[in-house]
């Protein structure tokens, strides 16, 4: 069983969101970069759990990014991946990124590809679906549980107001979210081992970008909170009804 886990580098969840170059670029100044939480906590950790249950499982990590993504990949390797592949390209177009990962996936003939349900920066929820289509594989988005059952997988996915359990034949592409696994932190042994695990850098294949970010903007600041006396709760109801027209 070979699993490919897609990893993305994102700003820390508490990072200040600001833009430079006339609002065309994210301001990375002083920002701490992390493994996208959905990629780490849910897809990578679930893959590690599968390996712990069956030592024959092999986990490869893939990321599309420049050399500044290497510390993130080392951290992922410290958590438990076997080896990593970095496609040496910088792009924010999901089709371009998916095309690069598809190429890696084709060469490695994986039984399973995990992605996070989205990245916390661009919130695209796109790579998994695009990858599945480029590889002509089944795709289950927003998985919250995953179990292997021979050549099949039993997957629970989120639907509006509930969840759905399905069986899918492998190979398949799965996008992972909360519920798949619990967050872990790397231990010292993992960190030491990660230093010598292979991190292969490959050059990108030719692929098109279908979209481009023109500019960023921030939402208007809130006017400020209107505080209501706890002894006069009916005033809050009046404000919500008459002023905010929310009830």
């Amino acid at each position: 069983m070979k699993i490919l886990v897609c990893i993305s580098k994102t700003p820390d969840t508490t990072a200040k969101i600001a833009f430079t170059d006339n609002n065309t670029k994210f301001d990375g100044n002083g920002v701490q970069w992390i493994i996208n939480p959905y990629d780490e906590w849910y897809s990578l950790v679930r893959a590690i759990e599968l390996k712990e249950a069956d030592a024959s499982v092999v986990i490869h990590l893939v990321t599309v990014g420049a050399a500044d993504a290497d510390p993130i990949i080392r951290k992922a390797l410290a958590l438990g991946g076997d080896e990593a592949i970095r496609v040496n390209a910088d792009s924010h177009d999901s089709y371009y990124v998916a095309s690069q990962i598809a190429e890696v996936a084709k060469q490695g003939s994986y039984d399973l590809v995990f992605t996070g349900k989205e990245t916390i920066d661009y919130n695209g929820s796109s790579i998994g679906g695009m990858l599945a289509e480029l590889l002509d594989l089944p795709y289950i988005a927003l998985a919250s549980k995953f179990e292997l059952a021979g050549t099949k997988a039993i997957v629970t996915r989120e639907i509006e107001g509930g969840e759905e359990t399905c069986e899918v034949a492998l190979p398949a592409v799965i996008s992972c979210q909360k519920g798949m696994a619990e967050a872990r932190i790397p231990n010292m042994r993992g960190i030491m081992a990660a230093r010598t695990k292979p991190l292969k850098v490959v050059e990108p294949v030719s692929a098109d970008s279908l979209t481009g970010i023109q500019s960023f903007s921030l939402p208007p600041a809130k006017a400020g909170v209107k505080l209501v006396d706890p002894e006069n709760v009916s005033e809050l109801v009046r404000l919500l009804h008459e002023e905010a027209k929310a009830i």
Binding site: I17, F19, Y122, I213, L218
Partner: peptide
Amino acid sequence: VFSAKAFANVS
């Protein structure tokens, strides 16, 4: 984008 902390104009 950025978990509803910002917007992007995408062509």
